[in-house]
Structure formats: structure tokens, C-alpha cells
């Protein structure tokens, strides 16, 4: 751990959201992750930062990629990773979130990774436990590790973030990824655009520091980065969007529309994708897509986050939780 001491301390016990983090907090985390990319890519080097530490993954919402990403990140750092199966546990039997938190806390874990369908669930849990809590998505609130891995991907592909034009397209209203990214990318100095029908934009979006577009072609014009968001199937027909056909016409990304963006524009997607709904396969699998890189950076970023949280704890440098 001593070798990490040259990084500024990440001054929080938990990572609950991007909102509240300063530019330097974010850059510290990105720098840590960036430095370990080459190490991480060597499979045989297993690090021992989390040796004998216990990481509990508590996923109240089904997730394959995020949970696996956290699990692999933890294992690569030497942690004992426990996945709490929420489906058949006492949670289903009516135990409250706070009871679950107290029970887990009594088992003295070091890191708790939580995903929950209610906004604020991670913060609620964090108030009740003594270990570090990482928010892996709470309702429509935040998904900070996704925003960080997105920033890492952009920085590694483009070299910098300041001044880039980044278009976030799709269901902004229900998206925690969008909220975390809007805050994070604005803090890092990007020009953030949102592209969505008004029914899928939250109230007050005009005060969130973004430029608003209601059609994808002007929205991605001269963009450096396009982030597509998943549109949930149940929201495609009915009050939010009349039909898949209409949605793809105005908001779906295909090769033709992609030409409006800068030539070296990259295309991102937090997954899982709806091919043919928000993104065509040709774009998703095309040369401008960095979707697989995002997945790879996901593991590295999460390793860096856990390391940073533990490091600041070990160095007794705890600040307030955020």
C-alpha cells in the first residue's frame, strides 16, 4: 500500500455519487486507475491490496455485468468476495434494508457494494454501517462507478476531457448513468449535451448545465463522444415514447447519422444494449465503438476505487461521507 502514497487522499469513506466530488477527487481516482491499466492487463499479477479483506456485493436489482465487474475487481485485489443472493434471502421475506445493513455490518466486512431500485438506498445503508459503501446504482439517482469508468475510457481514448463535446442520448429521465455522467463530465470541463424527447428529460434539466436537443442529428453534430443510453422496453410504447419505430427514427444511432459527428467521434453505451432500438449493430460493433473498452475499464476503475477507499481508511484520513 505504501507505493500508493504519492496519490492525494480520496477524502471520503464511501463512494455514493459523483455529485459532491470535486474535480481533483475525480482526477485522483482516474489517475490511480490509469496507472494500473498496464498492471491489470497482466493476468498473472494478482495484487494483494485487499488481501484477507471482505467485500460483500449486495445487489437488490439483477445485474450481470456490474456485479461480475465488481467481483473480478475485488478478486484481482485479493479480496474475499461474497455475493449476497438477494432473491432467496431474508430480504424477500420482508426484512428492511436497514435490518439487512445491520446484519451485514455485524459480519464486519470492509467494502459493501450495493445496487438497489430506490434512490438514496446506498446513502441510507452508508449511515448504518462502519465499512466503506460503494453505490453500484440506486434507482434513478446515481451510478458513480459507471461515470468514472466512462471518464477513464474517454480520457484513455481521447487523451483529455476538457473541452470535448459529449452527447448523452436517450432516456435521461430514468437514468442514473446520465445523472452521474452529467455531473462528472461537467466537472471535468466537457461541453455536455443531452438528446432526448422531452418526455424522457427530468424537470429542471435546463439548470443542469447541459445543452438540450430533441433530435439526434443536430444533437451529435460535431460531437467528440456519443453516449447512448438504454431505453427500457416497457417505456418504449405508450406515454413516454409512442413506438420503437418512431424512437429509432429520431433518437436511434446508425452509421448514416453517425457521420454528423466528428470523424474520430467515439460511441459508448453502458449496456446492456437494445440493438435496433437505440443503436444499430453496425455502429455497436463498428470501428468507432468503444463499448468493449468500457467493460475492460470497468474492472480497472473499480479496482482503483476500492484501493482508494481502503487507502484513505488505512491512512486514517477519513472525511465526511458524501
Amino acid at each position: 500500500m505504501t507505493k500508493n502514497n504519492h496519490y492525494p487522499i480520496f477524502p471520503y469513506r464511501h463512494l455514493l455519487g459523483m455529485r459532491g466530488l470535486s474535480k481533483s477527487d475525480i482526477i485522483t481516482l482516474l489517475d490511480r486507475a490509469n496507472a494500473s491499466v498496464s498492471v491489470s492487463q497482466q493476468k498473472d499479477v494478482k495484487r494483494s491490496v485487499l488481501y484477507n479483506r471482505i467485500q460483500i456485493n449486495l445487489f437488490f436489482e439483477v445485474s450481470t455485468r456490474t456485479q461480475s465487474s465488481f467481483e473480478i475487481a475485488g478478486r484481482r485485489l485479493g479480496a474475499n468476495v461474497v455475493n449476497m443472493p438477494v432473491d432467496n434471502s431474508s430480504v424477500k421475506k420482508g426484512e428492511t434494508l436497514i435490518d439487512t445493513a445491520m446484519t451485514l455490518n455485524a459480519m464486519d466486512p470492509d467494502i459493501l457494494v450495493i445496487r438497489h431500485s430506490s434512490a438514496g438506498a446506498a446513502a441510507l445503508l452508508a449511515r448504518k454501517v462502519s465499512c466503506s459503501v460503494i453505490n453500484a446504482g440506486d434507482g434513478a439517482h446515481e451510478h458513480p462507478t459507471q461515470a468514472l469508468l466512462d471518464a477513464l475510457t474517454i480520457r484513455r481514448t481521447k487523451g483529455y476531457i476538457q473541452g470535448l463535446t459529449i452527447a448523452i442520448c436517450g432516456d435521461i429521465l430514468h437514468s442514473r448513468v446520465a445523472r452521474s455522467n452529467i455531473f462528472s463530465l461537467n466537472t471535468l470541463g466537457a461541453n455536455v449535451r443531452v438528446v432526448a424527447p422531452s418526455t424522457l428529460l427530468p424537470t429542471g434539466i435546463e439548470d443542469m448545465g447541459v445543452e438540450i436537443f430533441h433530435s439526434i442529428e443536430p444533437g451529435i453534430k460535431d460531437a467528440d463522444v456519443i453516449m447512448m443510453l438504454r431505453l427500457q422496453r416497457e417505456r418504449m410504447t405508450g406515454v413516454f415514447v409512442p413506438s420503437v419505430r418512431e424512437y429509432f427514427h429520431f433518437f436511434g444511432l446508425d452509421c448514416e447519422k453517425l457521420k454528423k459527428a466528428k470523424k474520430d467521434c467515439i460511441v459508448m453505451h453502458p449496456g446492456p444494449m437494445n440493438r435496433g432500438v437505440e443503436i444499430s449493430s453496425a455502429v455497436a460493433d463498428g470501428p468507432q465503438s468503444v463499448i468493449q473498452t468500457q467493460v475492460e475499464m470497468g474492472v480497472i476503475m473499480r479496482m482503483a476505487i476500492m484501493e482508494a477507499l481502503l487507502d484513505s481508511r488505512n491512512r486514517n484520513a477519513l472525511g465526511d461521507k458524501i
Binding site: 434507482g139 427530468p202 434539466i205
Partner: peptide, 15 residues
């Protein structure tokens, strides 16, 4: 209350 604060918190607003 529906507004910027609810939107940042990811909570559904009441107009």
C-alpha cells in the same frame, strides 16, 4: 416537489 432538486436526487416529482 417536481424540480431540479428531485431530478438530481433521482426522485419522481409532484408538479
Amino acid at each position: 416537489n417536481a424540480g431540479l432538486m428531485a431530478s438530481w436526487l433521482g426522485l419522481s416529482g409532484i408538479p
